[in-house]
Design a protein around this nucleic acid. Structure first.
Lengths: 194, 194
DNA sequence: CGAAAATTTGACATGACTCAACTGGAGTGG
DNA sequence: CCACTCCAGTTGAGTCATGTCAAATTTTCG
């Protein structure tokens, strides 16, 4: 059962007794999105924080030219939302679209707030998750500055081998901030180097 | 008095009664760093989260060539630390150095944890601060991808006009991820365009 | 099998970097 | 108060990484 995935995941960080698990269960909903469906659209308010139990998503920004810039991917056990939009309940900057059929467990803003109050452990847990995400985000900024596109591609493969195998190459290029043509050239160089 | 700056700052987010203020006061220390002193050094454990009451800092990473890459600046009312190092109490990736004489209020890891327990409002407050920082960090990644160096410089001036006036130009170049020479060329173009 | 999508390849353009020389101000000491 | 040095900033020539555009090829999938 889907909810069990969330419990299993949480159990590696905090332990919830039965009562707490019941409270949690009462505050979430499940949903399945089909491939290509949008979980969040730029301009709409991001209503849910989503915990992915299966599937794969991309979070991206559309610039004025209509070009997609991928901010992050999401797979099993990742938390996905337009955080800025969610916390302020204002229009989203990003789109979240499913690359595969994706099952999620959803938390509304109100439910999450009430969970924080009812189960303080959960607030602590989310604080820590967000701290880690912030650290990772800062590291990514530095990486982008200090490495060439080729190095960044190699680092990406190291860090997210599972993602590399599941998403098309042009999306990886977008995530790395380079063109698909250039990534293609990088890959052919790498093959040549062996 | 320095501690009052922290209270004033906090009061715009949460209200603390006298008892809570006393608890807070008992868990922090003050320190003044001179210009050029290091608050954190790459390789050491980051022992404190610092709230700046006056002064200016830069947080930077030294790459293998010994080149400085500035991750962020800090001024009054900013929280400064190597967060990754602080939360895991492992060696820091970054250096924090003072650009001006800088006064801070410091929280050790242990004191902060105990404050979170004694004053849950504070844990909530920090969660929100970190959420915002994460949103800002993600936006910066996208900005770097979607804009030219010139645009990024103009955006930086918009976002942090106070910082621009306080730090030398070569540090701004480093923050923007470009060379000092190139920033100089950008500026001369901008003057020319008027 | 055929159409659409993804990837590759090549010619050319350009933004940003490197390196070296130069300018100009801000101390500092005689 | 001048001469000297030091540091930040500027400028220019040449180079390199990456982008653009268009065409060719390969893969995916109905």
């Amino acid at each position: 059962m889907q909810f069990q995935s969330l419990i299993n995941y949480l159990s590696t960080f905090i332990s919830l007794d039965e009562n707490e698990q019941d409270i949690l269960a009462s505050k979430v909903t499940h949903r399945t999105y089909l491939k290509n469906q949008y979980m969040v659209q730029q301009g709409d308010v991001c209503k849910y924080v989503n915990f992915i139990t299966s599937g794969c998503t991309k979070t991206f920004y559309l610039d004025n030219d209509g070009t997609e810039h991928i901010v992050m991917f999401g797979i099993e056990n990742w938390w996905i939302a337009d955080l800025g939009s969610f916390i302020t309940q204002s229009p989203a900057d990003y789109n979240v679209q499913c690359i595969e059929t994706t099952e999620v467990i959803q938390f509304t803003h109100q439910n999450l707030e009430s969970l924080y109050t009812q189960i303080p452990k959960l607030e602590r847990f989310f604080r820590k998750i967000i701290e880690r995400a912030l650290v990772a985000s800062q590291k990514r900024i530095v990486r982008n500055f200090t490495h060439s596109a080729k190095d960044n591609y190699l680092i990406f493969k190291e860090l997210y081998p599972k993602i590399e195998q599941r998403v098309p190459q042009y999306m990886i290029a977008s995530y790395l901030g380079i063109t698909k043509e250039f990534l293609s050239k990088i890959k052919s160089e790498l093959i040549f180097e062996k």
